[in-house]
């Protein structure tokens, strides 16, 4: 699918070295719009919305902050640790402001699923439906993410 010049600029911001060392696209050769649309379809197939996924991520992050850098148990089934690296990152979609390099580790003890995400991930999912490209170090596959967040009803 063709994409606008605006999306081309945003996609350039996601290349290695532009904002993060490794970029946000991994080995994904698709257009940004195709990446977003594919993940959007997957999220809908799971019966979720980007807002609901981001809300759970934010809730776990906020509860995990109470651990002051150590792991805490949240909602009796999530082990959550929130920590930070030095620095801040801008949104590649060119929103105002900077995001702390805060990362959140989650272990869902109910199903053993794990995930790690950043404050910028929460924003990009909520604001842009962007879960990063295939092979990106911080790629959040929607189904795996939903499973780790306890949003995916396993049969």
């Amino acid at each position: 699918m063709k994409q606008s010049v605006e999306y081309n600029i945003i996609q350039d911001n996601m290349r290695p070295g532009a904002i993060t060392r490794d970029g946000m696209l991994g080995h994904d050769r698709r257009n940004l719009r195709d990446i977003i649309e594919a993940d959007d379809a997957e999220v809908h197939r799971l019966g979720l919305t980007h807002t609901s996924v981001a809300a759970r991520m934010r809730d776990l992050r906020d509860a995990g902050r109470e651990g002051l850098g150590e792991t805490v148990t949240v909602l009796e089934r999530f082990d959550v640790r929130v920590d930070s690296a030095r620095g801040k990152l801008p949104c590649p979609f060119r929103h105002e402001g900077l995001f702390e390099k805060e990362f959140v580790e989650v272990l869902n003890r109910g199903n053993g699923a794990r995930t790690t995400f950043t404050a910028l991930n929460i924003h990009m999912i909520e604001g842009h439906g962007f879960y990063e490209g295939l092979g990106s170090p911080f790629r959040l596959d929607p189904a795996r993410l939903a499973r780790a967040l306890g949003l995916f009803h396993e049969t």
């Binding site: 070295g17 904002i19 993060t20 060392r21 690296a85 030095r86 620095g87 801040k88 990152l89 390099k101």
Partner: peptide, 11 residues
């Protein structure tokens, strides 16, 4: 420098 010269640590 903590970010390897990417302008993201401000150090």
């Amino acid at each position: 420098s903590a970010c390897g010269g990417r302008g993201s640590c401000g150090l």
